[in-house]
Design a protein around this nucleic acid. Structure first.
Lengths: 160, 160
DNA sequence: TTTGAAAGCATTCCTTA
DNA sequence: TAAGGAATGCTTTCAAA
């Protein structure tokens, strides 16, 4: 039986794990033997540690990072979404998930019920998605848009 | 001489590139030979394609993805920042960059001048950073916070 | 955690289309 | 300009201690 994720808790990570994490979160393709040399342990040790970090969920996978602009995605916006009723939450999230341009979706408290990040090719493309997809979703009352003119930086959570 | 990044433009990507991208953006550690088999080409071809995708900036690198909760980061918030004057922008961004808990920072238009994502261990930790770091930055007039109770999903830009 | 061995992979170069 | 094939040197993986 699995622990439900709302009970997720921090896991014990030692100095070696931290050092490994720092290296592999910067470059997922780094040879484990290179990590091993930097850490002063064997390659097999790194291999087993990384395996364990995956097993206990400290790392959830790896990815090559694409540059949206190079694929023609030049518009980035954040949107706050107001719902008609809180109970629409789940179905709205599922409707949002079906829109590939919605790249991030949060359940929030405060001014909005849902907060999303959306990447489109052009401003027109964004308008098209808002008009034809977002506003059609049942349960959405209204939205507020913040356009990102530039992403200044982006990184992962600090590792100690 | 490099092209400035504000002139970045979409790059020609063929079907093979797309297939490669789909695979390596899901799993940065996938053996190139496996990609090769799935694509029906040689390993050398994949190797050269990935190299090229990096060279032309379509992919900017690779990373293992950490699960913030497992490292004790249980609070996630978005914050809109109002500046006293627009010209403070650069220095404020640099001050924000120096705060490791600020994991994303955008130059925005609309209601806020800057929009950030911030991950902290606890709500108290968030308050501490707002009171002791954010509010101390010269040029910040005031901030508005949206707490994320849950990240429903997160993904990269669609590849065709 | 380590070692050691087997298997598999990345990388390079040269050739071909 | 892009891809295949083959060689070499590494890396990964797995058992055993």
């Amino acid at each position: 039986m699995n622990t439900p994720d709302y009970l997720d808790q921090a896991v014990n990570i030692d100095k070696l794990d931290e050092k490994i994490l720092k290296l592999i979160t910067q470059n997922a393709r780094i040879p484990f033997l290179e990590v091993a040399r930097e850490c002063g342990v064997s390659g097999a040790a790194i291999h087993q540690r990384v395996q364990r970090l995956q097993n206990i969920g400290v790392v959830s996978g790896s990815e090559f990072i694409v540059t949206p602009q190079k694929l023609g995605y030049n518009t980035c916006a954040y949107m706050g979404i107001h719902l008609e009723k809180a109970k629409f939450h789940t179905q709205v999230v599922e409707a949002l998930r079906a829109i590939p341009e919605v790249v991030e979706c949060h359940f929030t408290t405060g001014q909005y019920a849902i907060f999303i990040k959306i990447q489109t090719k052009t401003n027109k493309h964004l308008k098209h998605i808002i008009d034809n997809y977002l506003q059609e979703i049942e349960g959405i009352a209204r939205t507020e848009t913040f356009m990102s003119l530039e992403m200044d930086f982006k990184r992962q959570v600090p590792i100690k």
